[in-house]
Amino acid sequence: MDALWDGLKEALRLIGTGDAGLREVAWRTIVVSGSATLLALLAGVPAGYALARARFPGRTILIGLVNTGMGMPPVVIGLVVWLFLVRSGPFGDLNLIYTKRAMVIAQFLIATPLVVGFTAAAVQALPPQLPDLLQHLGAGRLASLWITAKEAHLGILAAVMAGFGAAISEIGASMTVGGNLQGETRVLTTAIVTESSRGQNAEAIALGLVLLVMAFGVNLLLTVVQQRRAA
């Protein structure tokens, strides 16, 4: 218990003094997971919209695949990305393995099915006549997508929260494709594993607290936006 209490005090001191190493890892985490979520949003919202609206052979199978993707273990995704990006892999020449970009790709693949699934569900919950109305009024594809996204914003913001939450909290994929290189690819989750395995409890707790605060802060911000629009 003392170790936990001492660790917590030291963690608060590290956070309070703005420890440079802690700030660097936290910032990298935001950049990597934020980029992955943003890309997942750009790809996932139109894909979710199309999945909800379009009728084509194999649609049910595709929805099943997306739903499976929503629960895919990150480490498996990390392994697949590693196999593609590793030097001997099909995209080895791109020299992406053990870089932040590789981590963004892996987290993008983790977050995208969540964004697609949540978006599709949100769009399907809208009045079924809405596409006809927009088409009838002369809205083009982009305008229809924009208006529909605005109508489904509650679900889409939930999709962003779920996607960002999945990206920032995963560890297996980041470890596999990023390599947890200090000063290069170490993010909060991989740093926590490293510090706790070294017995550096204070650092691990500090990193954990920062991770929790960051996840809570981003979700709180999105929730405020979501609920204000819902009011």
Partner: peptide, 19 residues
């Protein structure tokens, strides 16, 4: 298509509005 739709106004049976 769009050219025809522009010449028609249609009030659906179930009124549908955006927020």
């Amino acid at each position: 298509g769009a050219e025809t739709r522009r010449r028609v106004a249609y009030a659906f049976q179930q009124p549908v509005f955006v927020s």
